[in-house]
């Protein structure tokens, strides 16, 4: 599955594409919403490791504007619930991720992103 938790970790790895290669832009996405078990400890622990701006931007691209533009210093339950939903409950089933730098297209099909490159594209 591609949820935004994974999207926040992925970067373009085409040969010599090393700057502005993150975050990948979501394109033509088909979404599915599935409930996931809420785990506040996970969310609190993972928050500092997130690229926040990339997450907010990706959330907007899938139609969710519940997150603040800047990561809050104090987190309350409502915020954690929103973060949980954005990270773990929105599944991108079909579509693509496009590199903002070299425009390479990484397709997503049946919920699985294809990050394979052709031999001549590998760095």
């Amino acid at each position: 599955m591609v949820r935004l938790i994974t999207h926040n970790l992925l970067a373009c790895h085409v040969k010599r594409c090393t700057t502005n290669n993150f975050p990948l832009q979501l394109k033509d996405v088909q979404l599915a919403l599935r409930e996931a078990e809420f785990n506040a400890d996970f969310l609190r622990g993972f928050m500092p490791r997130l690229e926040w701006t990339a997450l907010v931007q990706a959330a907007c691209q899938v139609g969710d504007d519940s997150l603040p533009l800047e990561a809050p210093e104090m987190v309350d339950d409502e915020f954690l619930k929103n973060l949980h939903h954005v990270l773990l409950e929105i599944h991108i089933e079909e579509g693509a991720m496009v590199c903002p730098n070299c425009q390479h297209v990484y397709p997503i099909s049946n919920g699985i992103p294809n990050m394979l490159l052709a031999e001549n594209e590998i760095g």
């Binding site: 992925l10 599944h91 294809n114």
Partner: peptide
Amino acid sequence: TREVVWGDVLGKSWRDGA
């Protein structure tokens, strides 16, 4: 449901130190 990615172990499809 798990998070899975189709890719090669020689690829580098993650931001550094992610």
